[in-house]
Every structure is written in C-alpha cells, then in structure tokens.
Design a protein around this nucleic acid. Structure first.
Lengths: 124, 124
DNA sequence: AATTATGTTATATTATGGATATAACATAAG
DNA sequence: CTTATGTTATATCCATAATATAACATAATT
C-alpha cells in the first residue's frame, strides 16, 4: 500500500489520504477500475479511525475520483468535465500565482516548474 | 480599501485577508513601501475582530510579504529568495497538477491557464 | 508634558471542525 | 448462516478560529 499518514503533519488525516490517493491515480500506481481497500482495512493498516477514511472516500467521490458501491468497494473512476475541471484548476492556481508575482517569479519559471512536476509524475 | 470579508465563505477570515492582500500586491493595488491600515482600523472597516487582522498580518510577515514596525505600521516589503520561493511554489502546485493529470488536463492546457491568470493580474 | 494611537501580549469564551469510540443497520459475499 | 461491507447515528475530546476585554510599552500628535 502506497498510503501513509504523517502523524506530525498539520494537514488533516483525511486530506492526507485524499492527496495521496490522487497522486496514486496520477502516477498510475492505482488504475481506473481497480479498488482501494475497504474503509475498515485502510483505517487499520494506516493506523487511524474508520470514519476518517470514510470522510476521505466521501470527498473523493464528490470530487469525481472514485465511485463507491457495496460490491466492489471504492473503485477508481475519474469523472471528467473539461470545462469544470479547468475552472477548478484555475481557482486553485490563483493564489499560488499571485504569490509568485509578488516574489518576481516569471511566467517562464512557472512553466518550467509545471513541466518539472509533470515529468516527475510521469516517471514514477 | 480593496479588502472585503465574505462572511458566508468557509475560508477563515484571516486567510481571506492574507489572500486579498497578496493579490493586492501582485496587481500593484498596493506597492512596495506603502502601508496597510492599522490592525484596529482594518478590523473596524471590514467588520471583524482586531486579533483576526493581527493574525493575518503576523502570517504575512512570516511569509515575507510585509514588515511590521511601530512607526509605519504594516509596510509592504517583499522578501525574495528565488530558490526558496520556487520550492514553495512547487509544493503548492503538486496536488493541483496531480488532480489535473487524473482529469486528463494536458501540459499545454496548464500553461494556457497559467498565462490566462497572469494576464488577468497584469491588466488589473 | 499629556494624550492618543499603535503593535503586542494575555486571558477567557464560544463555535466549529477533525478525530476517535461504540453501536447499529441493511446488504452483498463467502 | 456468517462475515464483511458501506452507511448512519451519537457522543466525546481536542485544536483552531473568532470574539471580547484588558493591559502594556512605545511612537506620534497635540
């Protein structure tokens, strides 16, 4: 299992789960159609409460990354809607780019950073 | 004053202040060397408590956007350290780009989004 | 010199959200 | 029939956000 909780982080446990699962999907460590462990199993293996895992799964479902059904568990099923997804990413980038502008980070440097990160994800 | 609190937002008041001030700096609405209102004045004009403004200012100081001194108030003074600032932005971009990968947003589309946002900031 | 405004610190209270602990339920799998 | 599953329901504990007062030292103003 590629999921691990940092108990010293100030990030909420359920957010850590979310992010690691999303990175897992992005890097093909877990693929469309495959299942995540049950809420109880994952809770046990990473050492946190069942309800915390359940919350992460619920949010991931709402954001269109997984589909929950009783037979197959938490199945990776990415919901796509280009217009909506682009708008969402735009919102997420706004503050970071404003900070970058303040700090004199150029457009080219941002592009380079984006390429770096995408390359890292593609190689893993 | 370009700062306004959305009392219905789920974002913390002090985070709203932070972000709006950062955007204010990025868009040159407030320039290096100029001062923000005192914690008490800003608190009164936007309708929140003094300590909430103080927290926002304290965080902005720690992140290197303003400098607090007793004579001139909260002065815009952006601290730059390219290596550190680039690393910080990289961390901030990681999750958003992972989400984008899951949703099949291409490198070119991300670059276009970045350009869009930067253009918006530059025109204001 | 006295007053005012400032950032700063301290304490206390309330509300909200994160995390945990049990428990129970309907349903699907074994 | 038993087990495991997602789901729902309470309840408690703790940290954080926000507010309310209060006080203090220092700088600016009068």
């Amino acid at each position: 299992m590629f999921i691990e909780i940092d108990f010293n982080s100030d990030e909420a446990f359920y957010v850590q789960l979310q992010n690691q699962i999303i990175i897992g999907i992005a890097t093909d460590m877990i693929k469309e159609g495959e299942s995540l462990p049950s809420v109880r199993k994952l809770a046990e293996t990473v050492g946190i409460n069942m309800h915390t895992v359940n919350k992460a799964y619920t949010v991931l479902k709402q954001e269109g990354f997984i589909h929950l059904d009783r037979r197959r568990g938490a199945v990776i099923a990415v919901d796509m809607d280009k217009a909506r997804d682009l708008l969402e990413m735009k919102e997420q980038l706004r503050i970071s780019l404003a900070k970058g502008l303040c700090k004199n980070i150029s457009r080219e440097e941002v592009h380079a950073l984006v390429d770096e990160i995408l390359d890292e994800y593609r190689k893993e």
